[in-house]
Amino acid sequence: MSDAGFDEWLHAFAADEGYYVECENGHGHLPPRRVCPDCGSTEFAEEPLPETGTVAAVTTVHVPAPSFQADAPYDTVVAEFGAVRLTGVVDAEPGAVEIGDAVEPDVGASETTGDDVLVLRPL
């Protein structure tokens, strides 16, 4: 089963072509998006995402959901990428990143399910 809008967005990171969608009034969001929740605009354009982001929140997950059982413990972070934030699994040893660290996005795989996962890699 595919998820139109999301899947294309995620896989763009594998080609180093990460993007977000921006409404005509400059509000950044992630797809799929028809209406801007900030202003109601219905006009969107894809904009390139900054190549690196900055960690804004981090946790080391010790008790995972079944779909990440073999991955635990792992770090999940929320990182700022200009007009949007991204949430991803850190591609490094748990505890390796702190708030303020720079990270770059990529597509990785869950060790548990093999499913594609947005990973954020410390620089």
């Binding site: 804004a56 959901a65 999940t76 991803g88």
Partner: peptide, 24 residues
Amino acid sequence: ELYEIRAGVTFPGAYALMATAYAE
């Protein structure tokens, strides 16, 4: 589901993220 669960966010994990953001 798309942007959090698939990124390994659990319910405690989400509040842990809020806690670290609060401390910062």
